[in-house]
Design a protein around this nucleic acid. Structure first.
Length: 575
RNA sequence: GGACCUGUGGUGCAGCUCGGAGUGCACGCCGCCCUGUCAAGGCGGAGGUCGCGGGUUCAAAUCCCGUCAGGUCCGCCA
């Protein structure tokens, strides 16, 4: 139907008779003798000149045959790529009429998101959304190429899978043939890919859809896409190298620039210095440890196992209400409170302005100023609490105070390694797996599994970009003796293990190779490359925060007949 | 489950504190005019359940209560 795309026409095509297809982006009529139609497809806009009147409206679907000609002197438009040429002697065919769109198909329009989602097919016609989804396609393509080149084999795994009690909440799918029973949609292909390792696919990958029935966020949707991979006979370093390669290939395809390095940091370093296991390394402002300064202090607010601070350069200009908000934010994050100190200067001598200042001893004040490296005009905020809580509160405040949107460059990738095997204890006092129950403990820490489980490091690792966790992975346990010890530490006995993971443990009896893997979120990666702070902008048909699809109206009730067939009956919501 | 923000013609906003006729702006839409525009221009016009329900009041877009929807965050996300 067409011989070229709108955005591809250049002065080299002058004189050619071409046919374009697209939508009316704009029309400009100048009476009965002249009209311009800007025809748009995903590649760009082409100005078509009509001698006479036209009977088209915005977003009409047209086929236009015409002759490429240079624009007359003085009418070149440098703002569009095809601005040096135009289409003349046009024959316009209306392929379809269109009602006026609910909002402008235009990047300039800042449209209400619900309206965009209700008319997503119009929204996706906007150049920005075209770019985002095509960028996503380019990233997928680069990742596939990278994995293929590295010798990985793509294997598809089931979407209808067995419910497993581990991990995040699953979506359940009722079975028609087995009434009263359910499949689960996979949170990830985790167990399937481990079975593939036993099966001898020593380098597996999949661009896999994962589904988790957890509350949505700017960086979380019910369904999301991961590059899922698993390797047998590979060390942690080798696996991370493969992932790094895939990510750098994707980055190069998306941005044109191949990052030259991905740094590595231990989990302990990340928590200590950045207060989070997903540090944003685009800015400094590390946590400053004041525990020594306030050891044995008389200041009640600072009598805690861990006292840490953030120095906010120039933060002393914050108003009382801004500071109150900061304190509220700290409390909402679980802190008992937040102490703040404005650093003042009096004839060159630094001082502090704070409700707490009068409680500090002279030695404390002096050490406080030295340790924080404070300068006049700074704001120091201090949290005193248990170690993990202090770090996490300040880690969040650090991003609140010094951070910038995730999508703003530069791109700072970092591997976080040596995670703890267990992340605290559950309500029964049993250690809980930080990653999952099949994560291999660090060999150096194996002998502490029974005596001091919370100190055991895992062979697990996360990849972080600009403060967003892209993904995580681990070396898996492939030996029954170690698996049993890890289960035992978590209070899972042989019977329970068999009940919960029987099919995996069974498979491992038939020659399980050492293996490990990784999975990272493509939605997040593409959002960052696209300059978006929200993954909905790189998903064709996303859901709202309450999990609704405004286009289709899902979720919806099923017809009674279908409910009967599935053996499902709903009950009123308990009050 | 919780906190905060938002909801006003098709779109984006202002009006809300301090109640007084659906009051205004920009874009879009419809009609007419216009031979080189390109976010075209000129003239005219249409278009409203101020999210919904209740309350206070002589009078509510505006104040109060509730509720729904959307967003950001906390919880949650092995």
């Amino acid at each position: 139907m067409r011989t070229m795309h709108c955005g591809a026409v250049t002065t080299a095509d002058v004189g050619r008779r071409i046919t374009l297809c697209g939508w009316v982006a704009k029309r400009r009529e100048h009476g009965e003798h002249l009209a311009f139609i800007d025809l748009r497809d995903h590649t760009g806009i082409m100005q078509c000149v009509v001698e006479g009147t036209v009977d088209v409206r915005s977003e009409y679907v047209l086929q236009i045959e015409g002759t490429v000609a240079p624009r007359p002197e003085g009418t070149v438009n440098p703002q569009i790529a095809t601005g040096a040429v135009e289409l003349q002697d046009c024959v316009v065919s209306v392929l379809n009429a269109a009602e006026p769109p609910p909002f402008a198909v235009d990047d300039r329009a800042d449209v209400d998101e619900p309206a965009r989602l209700r008319h997503r097919y119009v929204d996706l016609r906007r150049p920005k959304m075209q770019r985002n989804l095509r960028l996503r396609a380019a990233v997928n393509s680069a990742i596939r190429r990278s994995m293929d080149t590295q010798g990985f084999c793509e294997v598809e795994t089931p979407l209808l899978w067995a419910p497993t009690p581990e991990g995040s909440r699953e979506f359940a799918v009722p079975s028609r043939l087995h009434q009263g029973k359910f499949y689960a949609l996979p949170q990830s292909p985790q167990l399937a890919k481990q079975l593939l390792m036993v099966a001898g696919f020593d380098r597996y990958y999949q661009i896999a859809r994962c589904l988790r029935d957890e509350d949505l966020r700017a960086d979380r949707q019910f369904e999301f896409t991961q590059l899922d991979l698993e390797c047998a006979f590979a060390t942690e370093q080798e696996i991370r190298a493969s992932v790094t390669e895939a990510v750098l290939d994707a980055a190069e395809a998306a941005t044109g620039i191949r990052p030259d390095s991905v740094q590595t940091m231990t989990w302990k370093e990340a928590i200590d210095q950045y207060g989070t296991d997903k540090p944003d390394l685009r800015f400094e402002m590390r946590l400053i440890d004041l525990s020594e300064v306030f050891a044995g202090t008389e200041v009640k607010a600072f009598a805690a196992p861990c006292v840490k601070a953030l120095r906010v350069e120039g933060g002393a200009t914050m108003s009382r209400s801004q500071l109150d908000n900061l304190v509220d934010r700290a409390k909402s994050l679980g802190a008992k409170g937040l102490a703040w100190f404005k650093v003042t200067s009096n004839d060159g001598a630094l001082g502090l302005e704070s409700p707490l200042d009068r409680f500090l001893s002279d030695a404390e004040r002096s050490q406080f100023l030295t340790t924080t490296g404070a300068a006049a005009g700074d704001l120091i905020v201090v949290v005193a609490d248990e170690y993990r809580l202090t770090c996490s509160v300040l880690g969040t405040l650090r991003v609140d105070l010094g951070g910038k949107p995730v999508s703003e460059g530069p791109y700072r990738y970092v591997w976080i390694i040596d995670f703890p095997l267990y992340d605290g204890v559950d309500s029964d006092g049993r250690p809980e797996a930080a990653h999952h129950a099949f994560t291999m403990p660090h060999p150096e820490d194996l002998d502490r599994l029974e005596t001091d489980p919370l100190s055991v490091r895992a062979q697990s690792y996360d990849l972080v970009l600009n403060g967003w966790e892209l993904g995580s992975g681990s070396i898996r346990i492939h030996r029954a003796d170690i698996q049993n010890r890890v289960f035992a530490a978590m209070g899972i006995d042989a019977e329970e293990a068999e009940e919960r993971f029987g099919f995996l443990l069974g498979a491992f009896k038939y020659g399980a190779p050492p293996h490990g893997g990784f999975a990272f979120g493509i939605d997040r990666l593409v959002a960052i490359f696209a300059g978006e702070n929200n993954i909905r902008e790189v998903i064709a048909f996303p859901k709202t925060q309450s999990g609704a699809d405004l286009l289709t109206g899902a979720p919806l009730e099923l017809p009674a007949k279908q409910m009967t067939e599935l053996g499902i009956r709903t009950v009123p919501k308990p009050v």
